[in-house]
Simulated scan of single mutants.
Amino acid sequence: MPIDVKPHAYDPGTSPELFEGVLARRVLAFAIDFVVIAIPIVLAAMFIFAFGVVTLGIGWALYWILSPASVIWAICYFGATLGGPRSATIGMRMMDLEMRTWYGEPAYFVLGAMHAIAFWLTVSFFTPFILLVCFFNQRRRLLHDIILGTVVINNAARAQSLRMAGVHA
């Protein structure tokens, strides 16, 4: 059974507008996504606290579920948003970014969920200095992008506006 090896769909040499400013906007998108993920967790913690007060401390036993629920919530958030029709989290949408496979296809739920897991594992095991990998490759991919075969690029509207403005003409 032959394996169909596909070429890279996005070339920074021929389409630099796809990669223009992606790194800085990716950091801002991460911060936005962090807030989006944190809000329900903080609300749940406040509810558990209030429930504990009402039940004279018995309800505080629910705090044990907060940590695993946070992980599940984050994985589902990234899987659903990156695997959605726009292949972007809420933060990425606000920053006009999208994630694609290296051969140009949109992301899907499992890829989005694995992207989040791979990010947290690489940063946890290799320290945040692993994020410096993006400065040593043309497509500005991070280690977890390389491992999973993804690339984060400007969305079509932003790329077109950069092309029309002649940013790299």
Rank of each mutant, 00 (worst) to 15 (best):
F129K: 02
P16L: 09
F30Y: 11
A44S: 12
I90N: 04
L23E: 06
I37Y: 05
A9F: 15
C76I: 11
L82T: 04
F34T: 06
A169I: 08
L18K: 08
G59Q: 10
I90W: 07
V36H: 00
D145C: 11
R25D: 05
P85D: 08
P85M: 05
D145Y: 02
L43K: 05
I48F: 07
F126Q: 02
P85L: 05
P68N: 10
L121S: 06
F136S: 08
F129C: 04
L162G: 05
E98S: 10
S161K: 12
A74W: 07
F126R: 00
L66Q: 05
A44N: 04
L97C: 01
A157E: 11
V71Y: 15
G83R: 08
T81H: 00
A107W: 14
R141T: 11
I3E: 14
A113M: 07
A88E: 00
V167H: 13
L111N: 05
S161L: 09
G84L: 11
F78D: 07
A38T: 09
I48C: 03
A156L: 13
F136K: 09
I37G: 01
R26L: 02
I32E: 00
A118F: 13
W120Q: 07
M99V: 15
I72Q: 09
E98N: 07
I37E: 06
V110F: 15
S124D: 00
T14I: 09
K6A: 14
A88L: 00
I58E: 12
R100N: 14
